[in-house]
Design a protein around this nucleic acid. Structure first.
Lengths: 197, 197
DNA sequence: AATGATTATGAGTGGAGACTCACTTTGTCA
DNA sequence: TGACAAAGTGAGTCTCCACTCATAATCATT
Protein backbone atom coordinates (compact mmCIF):
# COMPACT_ATOMS: atom_id res chain seq x y z
CA UNK A 1 0.00 0.00 0.00
CA UNK A 2 1.75 3.12 -1.18
CA UNK A 3 0.84 6.26 0.64
CA UNK A 4 -0.48 9.07 -1.52
CA UNK A 5 -0.24 11.82 1.06
CA UNK A 6 1.26 15.15 -0.03
CA UNK A 7 4.79 14.81 1.30
CA UNK A 8 5.11 12.09 3.88
CA UNK A 9 8.39 11.52 5.64
CA UNK A 10 9.69 8.25 4.29
CA UNK A 11 8.07 8.09 0.81
CA UNK A 12 9.21 9.32 -2.59
CA UNK A 13 7.68 12.58 -3.82
CA UNK A 14 4.40 12.50 -5.71
CA UNK A 15 4.44 12.73 -9.44
CA UNK A 16 3.89 16.23 -10.76
CA UNK A 17 0.47 15.53 -12.28
CA UNK A 18 -0.68 13.87 -9.08
CA UNK A 19 0.28 16.88 -7.00
CA UNK A 20 -1.43 19.22 -9.43
CA UNK A 21 -4.63 17.19 -9.42
CA UNK A 22 -4.63 16.94 -5.68
CA UNK A 23 -4.63 20.73 -5.42
CA UNK A 24 -7.32 21.07 -8.05
CA UNK A 25 -9.52 18.61 -6.25
CA UNK A 26 -9.10 20.35 -2.92
CA UNK A 27 -9.94 23.71 -4.45
CA UNK A 28 -12.95 22.33 -6.28
CA UNK A 29 -14.18 20.50 -3.19
CA UNK A 30 -13.90 23.60 -1.08
CA UNK A 31 -15.93 25.59 -3.58
CA UNK A 32 -18.57 22.92 -4.12
CA UNK A 33 -19.08 22.10 -0.45
CA UNK A 34 -19.20 25.79 0.39
CA UNK A 35 -21.96 26.28 -2.14
CA UNK A 36 -24.06 23.18 -1.55
CA UNK A 37 -23.01 21.93 1.84
CA UNK A 38 -21.35 18.61 2.61
CA UNK A 39 -24.13 16.62 0.95
CA UNK A 40 -22.93 17.67 -2.49
CA UNK A 41 -21.86 14.66 -4.52
CA UNK A 42 -18.29 13.61 -5.10
CA UNK A 43 -19.03 13.53 -8.82
CA UNK A 44 -19.70 17.23 -8.79
CA UNK A 45 -16.38 17.83 -7.13
CA UNK A 46 -14.67 15.73 -9.79
CA UNK A 47 -16.44 17.61 -12.57
CA UNK A 48 -15.51 21.00 -11.16
CA UNK A 49 -11.92 19.88 -10.75
CA UNK A 50 -11.85 18.57 -14.30
CA UNK A 51 -10.81 15.04 -13.35
CA UNK A 52 -12.55 11.67 -13.41
CA UNK A 53 -14.30 10.47 -10.30
CA UNK A 54 -11.78 7.67 -9.83
CA UNK A 55 -9.05 10.24 -9.42
CA UNK A 56 -10.82 11.88 -6.53
CA UNK A 57 -11.12 8.54 -4.81
CA UNK A 58 -7.49 7.71 -5.48
CA UNK A 59 -6.42 10.83 -3.56
CA UNK A 60 -9.11 10.69 -0.91
CA UNK A 61 -10.33 7.12 -0.41
CA UNK A 62 -13.57 8.21 1.25
CA UNK A 63 -15.70 11.32 1.12
CA UNK A 64 -15.03 11.74 4.83
CA UNK A 65 -11.32 12.03 4.22
CA UNK A 66 -11.89 14.63 1.54
CA UNK A 67 -14.00 16.68 3.90
CA UNK A 68 -11.41 16.34 6.62
CA UNK A 69 -8.63 17.48 4.32
CA UNK A 70 -10.60 20.62 3.53
CA UNK A 71 -11.26 21.18 7.19
CA UNK A 72 -7.58 20.98 8.01
CA UNK A 73 -6.80 23.55 5.34
CA UNK A 74 -9.50 25.94 6.41
CA UNK A 75 -8.72 25.63 10.09
CA UNK A 76 -5.06 26.21 9.38
CA UNK A 77 -5.85 29.40 7.50
CA UNK A 78 -8.17 30.55 10.26
CA UNK A 79 -5.47 29.93 12.77
CA UNK A 80 -3.02 32.04 10.81
CA UNK A 81 -5.56 34.84 10.48
CA UNK A 82 -6.04 34.71 14.17
CA UNK A 83 -2.36 34.86 14.97
CA UNK A 84 -2.04 37.89 12.71
CA UNK A 85 -4.93 39.54 14.45
CA UNK A 86 -3.45 38.86 17.84
CA UNK A 87 -0.27 40.58 16.71
CA UNK A 88 -1.72 43.58 14.87
CA UNK A 89 -4.97 44.57 16.50
CA UNK A 90 -5.63 46.43 19.66
CA UNK A 91 -5.64 43.62 22.22
CA UNK A 92 -9.05 44.65 23.49
CA UNK A 93 -10.68 44.38 20.07
CA UNK A 94 -9.01 41.34 18.52
CA UNK A 95 -11.59 38.86 19.79
CA UNK A 96 -14.47 40.96 18.48
CA UNK A 97 -12.76 41.41 15.15
CA UNK A 98 -12.13 37.71 14.82
CA UNK A 99 -15.69 36.72 15.64
CA UNK A 100 -17.04 39.32 13.23
CA UNK A 101 -14.81 38.09 10.47
CA UNK A 102 -15.76 34.49 11.06
CA UNK A 103 -19.45 35.22 10.93
CA UNK A 104 -19.00 37.20 7.72
CA UNK A 105 -17.28 34.26 6.13
CA UNK A 106 -19.61 31.66 7.59
CA UNK A 107 -21.21 30.91 4.24
CA UNK A 108 -17.84 30.20 2.68
CA UNK A 109 -16.91 27.93 5.52
CA UNK A 110 -20.05 25.90 5.85
CA UNK A 111 -17.98 22.87 6.54
CA UNK A 112 -15.88 24.46 9.27
CA UNK A 113 -18.86 25.80 11.07
CA UNK A 114 -20.41 22.38 11.09
CA UNK A 115 -17.35 20.61 12.30
CA UNK A 116 -16.44 23.16 14.95
CA UNK A 117 -19.48 21.84 16.72
CA UNK A 118 -19.77 18.23 15.57
CA UNK A 119 -18.43 15.14 17.25
CA UNK A 120 -16.84 12.17 15.57
CA UNK A 121 -14.02 14.10 13.95
CA UNK A 122 -10.77 12.30 13.25
CA UNK A 123 -7.61 12.99 15.19
CA UNK A 124 -5.90 15.22 12.63
CA UNK A 125 -8.87 17.53 12.40
CA UNK A 126 -9.41 17.34 16.12
CA UNK A 127 -5.96 18.71 16.74
CA UNK A 128 -6.62 21.59 14.33
CA UNK A 129 -9.81 22.38 16.18
CA UNK A 130 -7.82 22.27 19.37
CA UNK A 131 -5.41 24.85 17.92
CA UNK A 132 -8.31 27.10 17.07
CA UNK A 133 -9.70 26.74 20.58
CA UNK A 134 -6.38 27.73 22.02
CA UNK A 135 -6.17 30.73 19.73
CA UNK A 136 -9.59 31.89 20.78
CA UNK A 137 -8.60 31.36 24.40
CA UNK A 138 -5.65 33.68 23.90
CA UNK A 139 -7.81 36.37 22.33
CA UNK A 140 -10.29 36.04 25.17
CA UNK A 141 -7.67 36.40 27.87
CA UNK A 142 -6.19 39.46 26.15
CA UNK A 143 -9.59 41.07 25.90
CA UNK A 144 -10.20 40.43 29.54
CA UNK A 145 -6.82 41.89 30.46
CA UNK A 146 -7.61 44.92 28.32
CA UNK A 147 -10.92 45.19 30.14
CA UNK A 148 -13.18 44.90 27.09
CA UNK A 149 -14.63 41.56 28.12
CA UNK A 150 -16.07 40.90 31.56
CA UNK A 151 -13.92 38.67 33.79
CA UNK A 152 -16.49 35.96 34.40
CA UNK A 153 -16.82 34.98 30.72
CA UNK A 154 -15.47 31.52 29.95
CA UNK A 155 -14.00 30.01 26.80
CA UNK A 156 -16.76 27.48 26.21
CA UNK A 157 -19.32 30.28 26.35
CA UNK A 158 -17.48 32.26 23.70
CA UNK A 159 -17.20 29.22 21.46
CA UNK A 160 -20.84 28.40 21.98
CA UNK A 161 -21.82 31.91 20.94
CA UNK A 162 -19.48 31.83 17.99
CA UNK A 163 -20.81 28.55 16.62
CA UNK A 164 -24.40 29.52 17.27
CA UNK A 165 -24.17 32.84 15.51
CA UNK A 166 -22.29 31.30 12.61
CA UNK A 167 -24.89 28.57 12.21
CA UNK A 168 -27.68 31.08 12.37
CA UNK A 169 -26.07 33.39 9.84
CA UNK A 170 -25.35 30.43 7.62
CA UNK A 171 -28.77 28.84 7.53
CA UNK A 172 -30.90 31.92 7.59
CA UNK A 173 -28.72 33.92 5.22
CA UNK A 174 -28.67 37.07 7.31
CA UNK A 175 -27.62 40.17 5.46
CA UNK A 176 -24.63 42.22 6.50
CA UNK A 177 -26.68 44.67 8.47
CA UNK A 178 -28.49 42.05 10.52
CA UNK A 179 -25.17 40.33 11.19
CA UNK A 180 -23.74 43.57 12.49
CA UNK A 181 -26.69 44.36 14.71
CA UNK A 182 -26.91 40.86 16.12
CA UNK A 183 -23.23 40.73 16.89
CA UNK A 184 -23.48 44.11 18.59
CA UNK A 185 -25.96 42.64 21.05
CA UNK A 186 -23.76 39.67 21.78
CA UNK A 187 -20.68 41.84 22.17
CA UNK A 188 -22.61 44.02 24.58
CA UNK A 189 -23.29 40.93 26.59
CA UNK A 190 -19.60 40.09 26.68
CA UNK A 191 -18.33 43.57 27.52
CA UNK A 192 -17.55 44.62 31.02
CA UNK A 193 -20.31 46.82 32.42
CA UNK A 194 -18.01 49.83 32.66
CA UNK A 195 -17.22 49.64 28.95
CA UNK A 196 -20.79 49.65 27.69
CA UNK A 197 -21.58 51.97 24.87
CA UNK B 1 -58.70 12.44 -6.65
CA UNK B 2 -60.23 12.19 -3.21
CA UNK B 3 -58.79 14.44 -0.55
CA UNK B 4 -57.42 12.70 2.51
CA UNK B 5 -56.94 15.75 4.67
CA UNK B 6 -58.08 15.57 8.29
CA UNK B 7 -61.41 17.37 8.09
CA UNK B 8 -61.75 19.46 4.98
CA UNK B 9 -64.77 21.65 4.50
CA UNK B 10 -66.70 20.03 1.68
CA UNK B 11 -65.64 16.34 2.04
CA UNK B 12 -67.04 13.48 4.05
CA UNK B 13 -65.23 12.59 7.30
CA UNK B 14 -62.30 10.17 7.29
CA UNK B 15 -62.84 6.61 8.29
CA UNK B 16 -62.01 5.90 11.91
CA UNK B 17 -58.98 3.72 11.20
CA UNK B 18 -57.61 6.32 8.83
CA UNK B 19 -57.87 9.05 11.43
CA UNK B 20 -56.22 6.82 14.02
CA UNK B 21 -53.35 5.94 11.71
CA UNK B 22 -52.83 9.52 10.70
CA UNK B 23 -52.30 10.46 14.35
CA UNK B 24 -49.99 7.51 14.93
CA UNK B 25 -47.90 8.46 11.92
CA UNK B 26 -47.60 12.07 13.01
CA UNK B 27 -46.53 11.06 16.51
CA UNK B 28 -44.03 8.53 15.20
CA UNK B 29 -42.63 11.00 12.68
CA UNK B 30 -42.19 13.64 15.31
CA UNK B 31 -40.27 11.25 17.52
CA UNK B 32 -38.13 9.81 14.76
CA UNK B 33 -37.23 13.15 13.18
CA UNK B 34 -36.49 14.61 16.59
CA UNK B 35 -34.07 11.78 17.28
CA UNK B 36 -32.35 11.47 13.92
CA UNK B 37 -33.07 14.71 12.13
CA UNK B 38 -35.04 15.12 8.92
CA UNK B 39 -32.83 12.70 7.02
CA UNK B 40 -34.33 9.74 8.88
CA UNK B 41 -36.10 7.40 6.48
CA UNK B 42 -39.82 7.23 5.91
CA UNK B 43 -39.61 3.49 6.51
CA UNK B 44 -38.46 4.08 10.02
CA UNK B 45 -41.41 6.34 10.63
CA UNK B 46 -43.74 3.66 9.29
CA UNK B 47 -42.14 1.02 11.49
CA UNK B 48 -42.40 3.15 14.61
CA UNK B 49 -46.02 3.93 13.81
CA UNK B 50 -46.77 0.25 13.26
CA UNK B 51 -48.12 0.71 9.74
CA UNK B 52 -46.91 -0.25 6.28
CA UNK B 53 -44.92 2.27 4.32
CA UNK B 54 -47.68 2.63 1.76
CA UNK B 55 -49.96 3.95 4.46
CA UNK B 56 -47.59 6.74 5.29
CA UNK B 57 -47.49 7.75 1.65
CA UNK B 58 -51.26 7.55 1.37
CA UNK B 59 -51.61 10.14 4.12
CA UNK B 60 -48.61 12.26 3.17
CA UNK B 61 -47.81 11.87 -0.54
CA UNK B 62 -44.25 13.17 -0.14
CA UNK B 63 -41.78 13.27 2.70
CA UNK B 64 -41.85 17.05 2.44
CA UNK B 65 -45.54 17.13 3.24
CA UNK B 66 -44.99 14.90 6.25
CA UNK B 67 -42.31 17.22 7.56
CA UNK B 68 -44.51 20.21 6.96
CA UNK B 69 -47.42 18.64 8.82
CA UNK B 70 -45.16 18.12 11.83
CA UNK B 71 -43.92 21.66 11.59
CA UNK B 72 -47.43 23.01 11.64
CA UNK B 73 -48.21 20.98 14.74
CA UNK B 74 -45.09 22.00 16.57
CA UNK B 75 -45.40 25.64 15.66
CA UNK B 76 -49.00 25.63 16.77
CA UNK B 77 -48.04 24.21 20.16
CA UNK B 78 -45.22 26.72 20.50
CA UNK B 79 -47.64 29.48 19.74
CA UNK B 80 -50.01 28.30 22.45
CA UNK B 81 -47.14 28.03 24.95
CA UNK B 82 -46.19 31.53 24.08
CA UNK B 83 -49.66 32.90 24.52
CA UNK B 84 -49.86 31.24 27.93
CA UNK B 85 -46.53 32.76 28.88
CA UNK B 86 -47.65 36.19 27.77
CA UNK B 87 -50.65 35.85 30.04
CA UNK B 88 -49.03 34.30 33.11
CA UNK B 89 -45.48 35.55 33.39
CA UNK B 90 -44.17 38.85 34.56
CA UNK B 91 -44.25 40.90 31.36
CA UNK B 92 -40.59 41.78 31.66
CA UNK B 93 -39.46 38.16 31.87
CA UNK B 94 -41.75 36.40 29.40
CA UNK B 95 -39.41 36.82 26.43
CA UNK B 96 -36.44 35.48 28.38
CA UNK B 97 -38.48 32.57 29.64
CA UNK B 98 -39.67 31.72 26.16
CA UNK B 99 -36.21 31.81 24.64
CA UNK B 100 -34.82 29.71 27.45
CA UNK B 101 -37.55 27.15 27.05
CA UNK B 102 -37.07 26.97 23.31
CA UNK B 103 -33.36 26.40 23.63
CA UNK B 104 -33.92 23.68 26.20
CA UNK B 105 -36.24 21.91 23.85
CA UNK B 106 -34.14 22.54 20.77
CA UNK B 107 -33.12 18.90 20.52
CA UNK B 108 -36.74 17.77 20.54
CA UNK B 109 -37.62 20.27 17.87
CA UNK B 110 -34.80 19.72 15.46
CA UNK B 111 -37.18 20.17 12.62
CA UNK B 112 -38.62 23.45 13.86
CA UNK B 113 -35.26 24.95 14.47
CA UNK B 114 -34.20 24.06 10.97
CA UNK B 115 -37.30 25.38 9.34
CA UNK B 116 -37.49 28.57 11.37
CA UNK B 117 -34.44 29.56 9.41
CA UNK B 118 -34.80 27.73 6.11
CA UNK B 119 -36.29 29.03 2.94
CA UNK B 120 -38.56 27.17 0.57
CA UNK B 121 -41.30 26.46 3.08
CA UNK B 122 -44.81 26.02 1.83
CA UNK B 123 -47.54 28.54 2.45
CA UNK B 124 -49.25 26.71 5.30
CA UNK B 125 -46.06 26.44 7.29
CA UNK B 126 -45.08 29.95 6.34
CA UNK B 127 -48.19 31.30 7.96
CA UNK B 128 -47.46 29.36 11.15
CA UNK B 129 -43.98 30.81 11.21
CA UNK B 130 -45.55 34.20 10.76
CA UNK B 131 -47.74 33.61 13.81
CA UNK B 132 -44.69 32.71 15.85
CA UNK B 133 -42.93 35.85 14.69
CA UNK B 134 -45.86 37.92 15.77
CA UNK B 135 -45.94 36.22 19.14
CA UNK B 136 -42.28 36.92 19.69
CA UNK B 137 -42.87 40.51 18.61
CA UNK B 138 -45.48 40.86 21.32
CA UNK B 139 -43.18 39.45 23.99
CA UNK B 140 -40.43 41.78 22.83
CA UNK B 141 -42.60 44.89 23.00
CA UNK B 142 -43.83 43.93 26.48
CA UNK B 143 -40.28 43.44 27.69
CA UNK B 144 -39.31 46.80 26.32
CA UNK B 145 -42.29 48.44 27.98
CA UNK B 146 -41.35 46.76 31.24
CA UNK B 147 -37.83 48.07 30.78
CA UNK B 148 -36.04 44.71 30.78
CA UNK B 149 -34.98 44.94 27.15
CA UNK B 150 -33.25 47.97 25.70
CA UNK B 151 -35.39 50.08 23.37
CA UNK B 152 -33.19 49.83 20.27
CA UNK B 153 -33.47 46.03 19.98
CA UNK B 154 -35.42 44.90 16.91
CA UNK B 155 -37.47 41.81 16.22
CA UNK B 156 -35.21 40.39 13.53
CA UNK B 157 -32.28 40.62 15.90
CA UNK B 158 -34.11 38.65 18.56
CA UNK B 159 -35.12 36.00 16.06
CA UNK B 160 -31.59 35.82 14.72
CA UNK B 161 -30.25 35.25 18.22
CA UNK B 162 -32.94 32.70 18.98
CA UNK B 163 -32.28 30.62 15.89
CA UNK B 164 -28.54 30.89 16.26
CA UNK B 165 -28.48 29.76 19.86
CA UNK B 166 -30.92 26.95 19.14
CA UNK B 167 -28.84 25.71 16.23
CA UNK B 168 -25.72 25.88 18.31
CA UNK B 169 -27.26 24.05 21.23
CA UNK B 170 -28.67 21.49 18.85
CA UNK B 171 -25.55 20.63 16.90
CA UNK B 172 -23.00 20.92 19.63
CA UNK B 173 -25.13 19.27 22.29
CA UNK B 174 -24.45 21.83 24.98
CA UNK B 175 -25.21 20.73 28.49
CA UNK B 176 -27.76 22.53 30.65
CA UNK B 177 -25.12 24.55 32.41
CA UNK B 178 -23.48 25.83 29.24
CA UNK B 179 -26.92 26.68 27.86
CA UNK B 180 -27.69 28.71 30.95
CA UNK B 181 -24.39 30.56 30.91
CA UNK B 182 -24.52 31.31 27.20
CA UNK B 183 -28.07 32.58 27.40
CA UNK B 184 -27.10 34.76 30.35
CA UNK B 185 -24.58 36.55 28.14
CA UNK B 186 -27.10 37.08 25.38
CA UNK B 187 -29.75 38.30 27.81
CA UNK B 188 -27.23 40.72 29.24
CA UNK B 189 -26.76 42.05 25.75
CA UNK B 190 -30.50 42.55 25.39
CA UNK B 191 -31.13 44.11 28.78
CA UNK B 192 -31.28 47.80 29.30
CA UNK B 193 -28.06 49.08 30.87
CA UNK B 194 -29.83 50.12 34.05
CA UNK B 195 -31.08 46.59 34.63
CA UNK B 196 -27.74 44.85 34.43
CA UNK B 197 -27.02 42.32 37.08
C1' DA C 1 13.42 6.53 -27.10
C1' DA C 2 12.35 2.66 -24.24
C1' DT C 3 10.71 0.92 -19.99
C1' DG C 4 8.28 0.41 -15.92
C1' DA C 5 5.94 2.38 -12.22
C1' DT C 6 2.58 5.76 -11.07
C1' DT C 7 -1.62 7.91 -11.97
C1' DA C 8 -6.00 8.73 -14.53
C1' DT C 9 -10.16 6.95 -16.45
C1' DG C 10 -15.19 5.95 -16.29
C1' DA C 11 -18.37 2.15 -16.82
C1' DG C 12 -19.94 -0.81 -13.33
C1' DT C 13 -21.52 -2.47 -8.50
C1' DG C 14 -24.13 -2.26 -4.37
C1' DG C 15 -26.97 -0.21 -1.24
C1' DA C 16 -30.14 3.14 0.51
C1' DG C 17 -34.25 5.45 0.32
C1' DA C 18 -38.39 7.89 -1.88
C1' DC C 19 -42.30 6.59 -4.04
C1' DT C 20 -45.93 3.23 -6.77
C1' DC C 21 -49.63 -0.01 -7.46
C1' DA C 22 -52.14 -4.37 -7.89
C1' DC C 23 -54.19 -6.61 -4.51
C1' DT C 24 -56.21 -7.51 0.24
C1' DT C 25 -58.49 -6.02 4.32
C1' DT C 26 -61.61 -3.20 6.92
C1' DG C 27 -65.10 0.20 8.17
C1' DT C 28 -69.60 1.93 7.23
C1' DC C 29 -74.22 2.07 6.01
C1' DA C 30 -78.37 0.37 4.06
C1' DT D 1 -75.47 -9.16 7.12
C1' DG D 2 -73.99 -7.95 2.43
C1' DA D 3 -71.82 -4.83 -0.55
C1' DC D 4 -68.89 -1.30 -1.78
C1' DA D 5 -65.84 2.37 -1.18
C1' DA D 6 -62.07 3.68 1.69
C1' DA D 7 -57.89 2.39 3.56
C1' DG D 8 -53.94 -0.71 4.25
C1' DT D 9 -50.21 -3.63 2.48
C1' DG D 10 -45.42 -4.52 0.96
C1' DA D 11 -42.80 -6.21 -2.86
C1' DG D 12 -41.04 -3.82 -6.57
C1' DT D 13 -39.30 0.36 -9.34
C1' DC D 14 -36.41 4.18 -9.94
C1' DT D 15 -32.93 7.36 -8.93
C1' DC D 16 -28.94 8.89 -6.67
C1' DC D 17 -24.54 8.30 -4.87
C1' DA D 18 -20.32 6.35 -2.66
C1' DC D 19 -17.01 3.47 -4.02
C1' DT D 20 -14.27 -0.30 -7.25
C1' DC D 21 -11.28 -2.05 -10.77
C1' DA D 22 -9.60 -3.46 -15.29
C1' DT D 23 -7.58 -0.86 -18.65
C1' DA D 24 -5.40 3.28 -20.73
C1' DA D 25 -2.56 7.28 -20.44
C1' DT D 26 1.30 9.69 -18.43
C1' DC D 27 5.44 10.75 -16.00
C1' DA D 28 10.30 9.88 -14.62
C1' DT D 29 14.49 7.60 -15.26
C1' DT D 30 18.07 5.41 -17.90
Amino acid sequence: MTSSKPSPGGARPMRADARRNRERILAAAEAVFAEKGPSASTEEVAARAGVAIGTVFKHFPTKQELLQAIMKDLLGRLDRDMAALAADDAPGEALFTFVTRMVEQAAQKRTVVGLLAETGIDLQVASSVQMLREGIATLLVRSQEAGTVREGVRLDEVIALLTGICQGALHAGWDRDLQRRTLAIVFDGLRASADRR
